[in-house]
């Protein structure tokens, strides 16, 4: 029962972490979105044809540079990166918690998931 209580407390902590990540990213996306609407309000969006996004908002380092330069689309993309980073942070915390519990089986599973997530974000 003690282990179960500890898991419960940890779950509540993870829930708070996820909510903070969500609120933070939503705030950045909203700020970028308002700026975007001001900057682009008279243009017509073109989504019928797939061209793929310009390369300056496809990679983490470029998004950061673009966003810090005050570009609205870069700022939104930064918020989206924060959103993607939130579950990654959740997994990282889980690795630490399972290591503290000396639960090596679940250290292994969470490390695999963390590796898959980092691979995906760092790929190409």
């Amino acid at each position: 029962m003690r282990a179960e209580q500890r898991d419960r407390q940890f779950e509540i902590l993870l829930g708070q972490l996820l909510r903070i990540g969500f609120l933070l990213s939503a705030a950045v996306v909203l700020a970028g979105g308002l700026l975007y609407l001001i900057q682009y309000r008279h243009q017509s969006p073109q989504y019928q044809m797939f061209r793929g996004e310009p390369t300056d908002i496809r990679y983490v380092a470029d998004v950061l540079r673009y966003a810090l330069g005050g570009h609205s689309r870069g700022l939104i993309q930064l918020g989206l990166l924060l959103l993607i980073a939130t579950p990654i942070a959740r997994i990282s915390f889980s690795v630490i918690e399972f290591a503290r519990q000396r639960d090596w089986l679940y250290v292994t599973t969470t490390v695999i998931v963390l590796a898959v997530l980092i691979y995906s974000l760092a790929s190409s």
């Binding site: 909203l30 975007y36 989504y47 996004e53 939104i76 993607i84 898959v116 995906s120």
Partner: peptide, 28 residues
């Protein structure tokens, strides 16, 4: 589902599938 979706989101981002102007109103 957050972790699952984050695993494909990285690849989508590199392939240029995630447009900030469209993702913004959809996400919010």
């Amino acid at each position: 589902i957050g972790v699952t979706a984050a695993a494909s989101a990285g690849i989508y981002l590199h392939r240029g599938y995630i447009d900030p102007g469209l993702a913004m109103p959809v996400m919010l």
